[in-house]
Each structure stands twice: as structure tokens, then as C-alpha cells.
Design a protein around this nucleic acid. Structure first.
Lengths: 233, 233
DNA sequence: ACAAAAGTGTTACACTTACACCCATGT
DNA sequence: ACATGGGTGTAAGTGTAACACTTTTGT
């Protein structure tokens, strides 16, 4: 096996990109950035930074999220490595991308301080530079899997939400429409939702108010331990 | 965004490990190697090589497989990047691991030329050096997912196989036993198996011979296109 | 009263699970 | 004839999918 590392082998640079999905109660969105410097100045990209040789990619990715949004207290996991030798014109840069899901409320600085960053609807993404469209594509598959197998609402939905909101989130994540009655039956049968007794009007045009639910976190933890799988095909 | 790469950022080395699963008709096995040089001389590891800064990790991984087994014509996909800063004592080495499944027959050099490499039963793995046990653990989850959702037999099973063999493969991959009648019903209903009319005796002790089946590749391709999912929970 | 979105049930079908004995063959 | 592993069926229960109207509320 060719495993003796020599000095000339240590010539690769690392970067990390974060793929952050947020749901504002209406639209599923993705955080993107506009590049200010060359190469690709002005182009849209995923939020990205280089990782110095002594740094941990995960920690750097979390710092990046915190710098942009002011927080990083949501689920984040590694997505994959993107390592095509020519993906970056500056040299051999391996990108180790992370993926997270969060709720877009006032706590996350929804209107990001720096206009460099913005949330865009996932169904309305602009073209992205480098291989970032590939990274997004990959992350969308991951998101679909997560949505199908876990009640992801904890991280994406508001603390209190309507059944129509959660259905809309699922529809946007899976890219297809779902039957309202079947969706509700399945969701309610899981017993992961608690009625709050509260209601909201979904829009000024809506006359009848909608019931608000919240997640039963205790129940979820219990079911999780038992290897519970939600599975929405 | 901190994205200007400088010379001192290009100080990381790349390696790739391959996680190869093989099935010999009886046992599900994993290819491991014994390290001949320091560090960790004598220890068990996944087959691994360094990747030079101008090389493509996937190509290097395929070359490694070919060097060890004489072939590389089976499904291979990226597993993940393993990038803990201190995972390798020689310096910052990011490992981009690949994962493949193959049948262990005479075409693959089952008794590998160099005793450095060997196939071990997945349920009987020795301890591995570096973070290779983590990589294997990760790959086992991937294998489970694949087995559940795709008829993986194409790549792992012999060209002609018995229903007991395929069940044994599934049981080893999923780590649990399955009901024989239910398993057969599900498999036959999928209509992906063709009877060959041939039989074999599974062992010298077995009196009654077992029927041999093969995959209906055409049907599989048709179903695949339609987004068919096998799903064995 | 009407406009708007919220909410609600039934039926047919497909799939899953649990379960134990007979069969074919070689010795 | 017996030992060995190969092979088979049924019934109950559970989940899925398709489908359209009534209810509540604000204006």
C-alpha cells in the first residue's frame, strides 16, 4: 500500500460549505451568498470558507453559520466531500460540506446583517458557481430522506404550527403534493403532535382560523430510542 | 467569507480507503489489509493509499481495488470524508472513502496474491487502526440502506443463486433473521427472479437439492427507471 | 349571504406478520 | 427408513390511496 506521506503530498487545501435549509412557516428556503472577490465575483455560491490545515472542518462550518446567522444551535451533519481535482480554479481544494435545518424566526437573524447573504426559496434557486449546484442537489436528496424517515419538524417548523404548514413543508421538501386527509391521519396517528388549543389565521384573506399544534418532544425521544421510523413514502 | 487561498493553506494530504463487501455464497465478507510499515505496522486496516494533490480520489480508489483484486468492475460509490484533524499521526490527512459490493468468485482473485490482504466475515472483524472502525461502521449503515431499498443481488450474489443464499445475504447485511416464507413471497412477487431450472446441493450433508435462480436484469432496469424501490424493512 | 380556507370519513386494496408441517433426495 | 435441509399456505391485522363535501369564521 502506498501510504508513506511525504512533504509533497501535503499540498491540498480544504474548504467547507454549509447547506442550510430554513422554513419560515410558508416557504422552504436555502441560504446563499454572493461572492465579493475573484474568482467568480458577483456569482452566487453556498456560504463557504477555507479550512486551515490544523482546523476541524465541522468546527469551522459551525463558526461560519454562527457568523452569518448569529446562531448555530440546530442539527448539523456532514453532507459529503466534494473533491473533483479541478472543481476550484485556485488549486486542489477539497470541499467538505455540511448540512443543517433550522426554523426561520426572529431569533435567527432573518434579515441577515450583511446583504452578502440571503435566503432564497428552494424552488427558485439562481445558478451557483463552482460545483455548488451539485452540492445542493446532493443535499436535497438527503433532505428528502430525512423528511421521509424522521419528523424533522423539530428543527424546521416554528414552535407552534398548523397542520397546513407542516404539510406545505413536506410538499416542498419532497417536491410533490400530498393528500390532505391522508397526511393528517398519518401525522395524528403518530401521536407526536400536541394540540395547543390556540389558533391563528393563516392569512388576512383566511376567515376561519387554523389550529396550532406543537411537537411532543418527550414522546419523540421515547419513540426514537425504540428505533421509530416515521417513513412518509 | 474567508476564501482567499494562500500557500500555507495547501498543507493537507489526501488518502482514500476502500470498503469492499463481498459475498461468497455463504458469508458476507469485508476486505482488510495488514499494515507492513510504521505507523501501526502489523495492525489491520482498510485497504488505503495516499492520493497525490493532482489525483482524483475516485480514480485512485479504483486503481487500488484493481491492484488488490485484479478487477474493479462492480458498483462503487463515495462513502464519505473522514477528516478529524488528528486521525492520522503523520499530519493532517483527509480520508475520502469509497464503498463497493462484489461477488466473490474465481474471477475476483479470491485468494489474493499477496497475503497482505484478506477477506474476513463481517461478523468477525478484528480491531482496525486509525479511525477505520468508524469508516466500517458508517459503511455498514450504508449497506443496510442499500439492501433495504435495492435488490443488491446483482453485485453481491453469484450469477445463479438459491433463495436460501439470498436470504442469508440479507440476514447478514441487516444483522437480523428473516422469516423464510415471507421473504420468499416478497422476493418472488417482485418478479425480479428467473428460474434457471437448475439445482445444486448446498452442502454434502444436504440431500435435497436447491433451485437456482438468476436476476431478471431487463426487468430490473425497467422498474428502476420507474423509480422502483424494493424496501425490505 | 358569501367568500375563503379549515377540517373531516369511508372503502377497497395491498402489504405485513405470525406461524408449522410436508417434501424431495441421498445415504 | 431416516436424516437433512428445501420448500410451501393461510388468516388476521395493519397501512395506503383515492376520493368530495361540510364547517367555521370574517367581511
Amino acid at each position: 500500500m502506498r501510504v508513506e506521506f511525504r512533504e509533497e503530498d501535503f499540498k491540498v487545501a480544504l474548504a467547507t460549505s454549509v447547506v442550510l435549509y430554513g422554513f419560515d412557516g410558508e416557504d422552504l428556503k436555502l441560504l446563499i451568498a454572493t461572492k465579493s472577490n475573484e474568482p467568480f465575483a458577483g456569482a452566487n455560491v453556498l456560504p463557504s470558507v477555507k479550512v486551515r490545515p490544523d482546523e476541524d472542518t465541522f468546527i469551522v462550518a459551525k463558526e461560519l453559520m454562527r457568523r452569518i446567522t448569529g446562531r448555530d444551535d440546530w442539527p448539523v451533519e456532514i453532507l459529503n466531500a466534494f473533491s473533483d481535482p479541478y472543481r476550484n480554479p485556485s488549486g486542489r481544494v477539497v470541499n467538505i460540506a455540511y448540512y443543517g435545518t433550522l426554523r426561520l424566526d426572529d431569533n435567527v437573524h432573518y434579515n441577515l446583517q450583511r446583504s452578502e447573504y440571503r435566503w432564497v426559496k428552494v424552488n427558485d434557486l439562481p445558478p451557483l458557481a463552482y460545483d455548488h449546484a451539485d452540492i445542493v442537489e446532493y443535499s436535497r436528496e438527503r433532505l428528502k430522506r430525512r423528511v421521509k424517515r424522521r419528523p424533522i419538524g423539530f428543527s424546521l417548523l416554528p414552535q407552534e404550527f398548523t397542520l397546513n404548514q407542516i404539510q406545505s413543508l413536506y410538499e416542498q421538501a419532497l417536491g410533490k403534493s400530498l393528500d390532505k386527509r391522508n397526511f393528517r391521519r398519518k401525522l395524528l396517528k403518530s401521536e407526536l403532535l400536541l394540540e395547543t388549543g390556540k389558533t391563528v389565521r393563516s392569512s388576512p384573506r383566511a376567515k376561519r382560523p387554523s389550529a396550532l399544534f406543537k411537537f411532543d418532544e418527550k414522546k419523540y425521544r421515547t419513540l426514537s430510542l425504540k428505533g421509530y421510523d416515521f417513513v412518509y413514502q
